[in-house]
Design a protein around this nucleic acid. Structure first.
Lengths: 222, 222
DNA sequence: TAGATTGTTAATCGATTAACAATC
DNA sequence: TAGATTGTTAATCGATTAACAATC
């Protein structure tokens, strides 16, 4: 597995988007692309694309451009998509079930192998082919199964305790959907999806959309 | 409504997080905080906090710090949370239903007034107190109701057409959960939540976690 | 070979941090 | 008033863009 250090998060954050666009190009049977063409497609500069890719080595060829298939595969490797991960979902509400049903994830190597909840009513019912188990079974389950990722789709007041429970039992990464910032030991990877943050960005932009036809003013209007 | 121009997106992206932390402080009955204390809490620098807040005016008081309640309210206003929005959800799958059930959103002013799907089986069934309607009713519905936001929780191949349909009928903002980048007219606000991008960040960090106890090397290992 | 396009260095731009005078 | 902490300017740092030599 490739390991990279010293690559800035700004670059890393763009990688999944490259990966997605390259996948789309493959679907359209486009097998070769220049940084200029890709830049136009993705609304970036060609220079930035070349800089980004060169953090990881020379994937292109002078005078030719980039091989789409090759670049897609390589970016996949950088992102860690060349292996599989076992994931459990904590919280069998709508969001938890939505994640469990997301067939795309399995294709990228993220396999949901367990769903847990505290509600005894849900015990034993199935989501896809996965039975919902009780949280009380979790410690034993984690000892018997190799789980790398736990998705937290539960209320914020339960998130901290659950995160601590699973990481104490060997889980190395938390995918956090609870409306809170988890503070966990440094070696635990935490990736948060704050839906309300996203919605607030949306409403900010609705109030503050800069109409490019109007002249820009730096003044603040009430 | 306050309008701000020329404030960088880096600053805007931090606002929801400030809002969240200030809310938590209020819950703990903390009514006053200095930039230094808040910085420690949020893992930022005091300097950055003061810079950020001063993009919008002086919310603090020398020698005292910031009034938590006041700052929370003001950031809420900046984010556009001092008004209400009508939102519809397109796609009544698990994710769509999860969003419809998220009671928090209503508290921030985002009111789900309609859910739409193409599956006739779902026609008329209820999510919370909202009936699922058929997409074919959408144009008429949009003429009769004032809808500002449409959340797209449907397969990527339907996303583009739906986004175009609703924006043609007056919807000004799209909250996009489909695994695709929508290209829409400039005056349409698009905010995307790419779950798989987030998951890829997670797996990247799992492979590339920089153990601070080890010495850093800039070399690439295979 | 000539044309095209990368890889890479240098220049610019923007964001973060530091410093301190203003002031509560 | 003295102490504390902001608002704001200046310095630093990092990220993006431009330029061009290397090379396919």
């Amino acid at each position: 597995m490739a390991r990279y250090e010293g690559v800035s998060v700004s670059v890393i954050r763009r990688l999944p988007r490259y990966h997605r666009f390259l996948y789309d190009l493959l679907q359209k049977d486009i097998h070769r692309i220049s940084s200029r063409e890709l830049a136009e497609l993705m609304n970036l500069t060609a220079s930035q694309i070349r800089q980004d890719l060169n953090c990881f080595g020379g994937f292109g060829q002078q005078g030719y451009g980039y091989n789409v298939q090759h670049l897609h595969t390589e970016i996949g490797k950088i992102l860690g998509l060349d292996r599989t991960y076992n994931m459990i979902i904590l919280g069998a509400g709508n969001l938890g079930q939505a994640l469990a049903n997301y067939s795309k994830f399995a294709r990228w190597g993220f396999k949901v192998i367990g769903i847990f909840d505290v509600d005894p009513e849900l015990d034993g019912s199935m989501v896809r082919d996965i039975p919902i188990r009780m949280v009380s079974e979790l410690p034993r389950y984690l000892k018997e199964n190799d789980v790398q990722i736990a998705a937290l789709t539960l209320p914020r007041n339960q998130a901290k305790a659950m995160a601590e429970l699973v990481t104490a039992n060997g889980v190395k990464a938390i995918w956090n959907f609870a409306h809170t910032d988890l503070k966990l030991p440094e070696d635990v990877i935490v990736e948060s999806v704050h839906l309300s943050d996203s919605l607030m960005q949306l409403s900010y932009n609705m109030s503050n959309y800069k109409d490019k036809t109007q002249k820009k003013s730096r003044t603040k209007e009430k």
